[in-house]
Design a protein around this nucleic acid. Structure first.
Lengths: 200, 200
DNA sequence: AAGAGTGATGACAGCAACTGACATCAGCCG
DNA sequence: CGGCTGATGTCAGTTGCTGTCATCACTCTT
């Protein structure tokens, strides 16, 4: 059964409803939010999107991945901002600039980001997936720093510390009720990292 | 079928072979190493240990967890070392002391740690699990710092940065062919973090 | 010593995640 | 017009994981 049948095939007679991928993502986020990740089956997600389980797995490698389609874009923004920071900037400052760019991107969809984060925080399995995405960001960021001339281990350390800053700032941003500015929170957290590693 | 039947019931006529848990861990590590995590079934692990699939899941929550039974001990060592650092030590130095204690523990079983790490590195699923274990260490470490009087976000940042140091040092230690000293590598990586966050 | 636990294990059924193979069919293109 | 394409459906199968009940050597009680 296709959703087009239900809707009456009025979208210019396209064979299928467009944006299957987007519909699956919306359905998954909604259902994970309503009943929790573990209590939702892939068949249910697919049904809400007017598709079948098999089609879900053509778009997403597994049940978790459906919440992480934005990771690629985030990584691109992060890396390109790091690469395009002035040559004179120290690695840690290139990282700070990259994190602020990524933060600005997330800020554009505050409500979505909050909802999504609440869903992820409620499930250990989803938290695992998020952590490996963040590790992938750190790895890509370290590569970018090496392209800027940083040495291997220092690049890794700078990138990982930067991602730690990002995590802390993002968590604050998500939980604060006021409309805080994420890039600003990133700057503050970065300063706090510098203070803390200096032994204060 | 019990393994005792095969072996001939000569261990003082105990009803079952002792240390089922340990046998499962050994069998899993061996099989994951031989054919890879994804190409190993739980039934095969259980069979090699002389047990059934059902018993495997009585000891371990899932197929990955069997490689992480040491995480609890590591966390205890880490936390108790952090808590027992001198009151005069800055948070980052308490973390450094804690990481060195944990490093010394791992160093006692260098070959095991290497083998295990090679297996984990070969599987994305296992890397995910490792990352959440490290996140749990960071969280416990941050709690320990708060008990020492550190404020919330600073404690989180210090702990996360410390775990980043640990990751980098551990990776060096595992990959170096020479018999390097892990606590020493941790000290060096910590110094590198301090340099890097200072803008060098 | 007989009988009543106990605890680790096995046996079995069942659900849900995921995969491979093949079928379908509207629209496009030559 | 007819063949090709690409997104989807259908179906069968494997495996991870769970609930439930059975088994039975050992132990404790009386």
């Amino acid at each position: 059964m296709s959703a087009a049948v239900i809707i009456g095939y009025d979208r210019g007679m396209a064979r299928w409803e467009p944006d299957s991928r987007g519909r699956l993502e919306q359905a998954a986020l909604a259902l994970y939010g309503e009943r929790g990740f573990e209590n939702t089956t892939v068949a249910e997600i697919a049904a809400r999107a007017g598709l079948t389980e098999r089609t879900f797995f053509r778009y997403f490698a597994d049940k978790r991945e459906v919440l992480f389609s934005g990771a690629g874009t985030l990584q691109e923004v992060l890396v390109s901002a790091a690469v395009s920071a002035p040559d004179s900037a120290a690695p840690i400052d290139a990282v700070a600039a990259a994190l602020e760019a990524a933060g600005a991107l997330l800020q554009e969809r505050r409500e979505f980001a909050r909802h999504r984060q609440a869903v992820i925080a409620a499930s250990t399995e989803l938290r695992e997936r998020e952590l490996i995405k963040l590790a992938s960001l750190a790895s890509a960021l370290a590569d970018a720093l090496r392209r800027r001339g940083a040495t291997g281990p220092a690049a890794t350390l700078t990138a990982e510390a930067g991602i730690a800053v990002f995590k802390v700032a993002f968590e604050r941003w998500v939980n604060e009720s006021n409309q805080e500015d994420l890039p600003q929170l990133i700057r503050e957290s970065m300063d706090e990292l510098k203070a803390v590693t200096a032994g204060r």
